Amino acid sequence: MSDSAPTLAVSSLVTALRAAGCVFAEDEAELILSTTTDPAEIAAVVERRVAGLPLEHVLGWAGFSGLRIAVDPGVFVPRRRTEFLVRQAAALAGPGAVVVDLCCGSGALGAALAVQLGRIELHATDVEPAAVRCARRNLAGTGRVYEGDLFEPLPATLRGRVEILLANVPYVPTDDVGLLPPEARIHEPRVALDGGADGLDVLRRVVAEAPRWLAPGGHLLVETSERQAARAVETIARSGLLPRVVGSEELYATVAVATRPDGAALPGPSGG
């Protein structure tokens, strides 16, 4: 009896989710039941999910690099492919590294990197107030979170000291935003998705400023798409940083890495 009851609960939950068009109904059912076993709460969760809300917003958390990251409604949901960016950053940094996470969203990248490295000096920024509130919860006791546009709210004392600069910038071309799944298009902030005409507008802004913030030998890591990688490399090279691209077929992830050469002088206020 005790074995059949949970099986029956999972089965009925899967049926309801599948009927609503959830492709990964079995996985979603397991996640829901790992969050609550209260029948009334389960019914409420299913109702919201069937209405089209992202599962992570319904549950209140997203799985990322083995962590449960709090994700509030209206906040960008961290994607599993971005775990690849975090792994690349961890391979380039050591304990105590000075890390900046731009466009931090929920703070998932900084939280995951801090766990992997053990101890870092972490600063994160986002322009969305809802994301900043969420990130401050996820990074409490781990790092400082600032509200503002890219580098603008960061302390000037970080200039030339940043060893790892994470930038999970929006990179969907404007004309393609309408092709995204409704969960993203409707329930996530457009500013976290829309990267301009070719998807690289925010990347260009980050790359233009990055040399003034990176320490000699420091690294900027930016998620992009495979088709945008060549243009991203050209943009990085023009900034005086050394570019390379790494990818993961398993996660369908592409990351551009830009390194400030050792001994390279910081550019002046107008860039260069």
Score class of each variant (00 low, 15 high):
Ile32Arg: 01
Ser12Ala: 12
Ala25Leu: 04
Thr35Val: 07
Thr15Ser: 14
Val58Pro: 03
Leu33Ile: 09
Leu33Tyr: 03
Leu59Gly: 06
Val14Ile: 14
Arg48Pro: 09
Ala70Pro: 03
Asp27Lys: 11
Arg68Ile: 10
Phe24Ser: 14
Val75Thr: 05
Leu31Tyr: 08
Phe64Glu: 11
Ser12Ile: 11
Ala20Arg: 05
Val14Asn: 00
Phe24Cys: 08
Gly63Met: 02
Glu28Leu: 01
Thr36Cys: 02
Val50Ser: 00
Ser34Thr: 04
Ile69Gln: 07
Arg48Gln: 15
Trp61Ala: 07
Glu26Trp: 01
Leu13Pro: 00
Asp27Glu: 15
Leu59Val: 04
Asp38Leu: 10
Thr36Ala: 07
Thr37Phe: 02
Ala43Tyr: 09
Pro39Ala: 07
Leu13Asp: 07
Asp72Pro: 06
Val45Tyr: 09
Gly21Gln: 05
Leu53Gln: 14
Ala44Phe: 06
Leu59Asp: 06
Leu17Pro: 01
Val10Ile: 07
Ser34Lys: 03
Phe24Asp: 15
Arg68Thr: 05
Gly60Ile: 01
Leu17Cys: 11
Glu56Phe: 01
Pro39Ile: 08
Thr37Gly: 04
Ala44Met: 01
Ala19Tyr: 01
Ser65Glu: 13
Pro54Lys: 09
Ala29Glu: 08
Gly21Ala: 02
Val71Gly: 04
Arg68Val: 08
Ala43Asp: 10
Val58Leu: 03
Ala44Cys: 03
Ala25Ser: 12
Asp27Gly: 14
Cys22Ser: 13
Ser11Pro: 05
Arg49Lys: 13
Ile42Phe: 10
Asp38Phe: 09
Leu17Val: 04
Pro73Arg: 06
His57Pro: 07
Ser11Lys: 11
Gly66Lys: 07
Phe24Met: 10
Asp38Thr: 10
Arg18Val: 01
Val50Gly: 03
Asp38Ala: 14
Pro54Trp: 02
Arg48Leu: 15
Ala16Leu: 13
Gly21Trp: 02
Phe24Tyr: 10
Arg48His: 13
Val23Phe: 03
Thr15Leu: 12
Leu31His: 05
Gly63Trp: 03
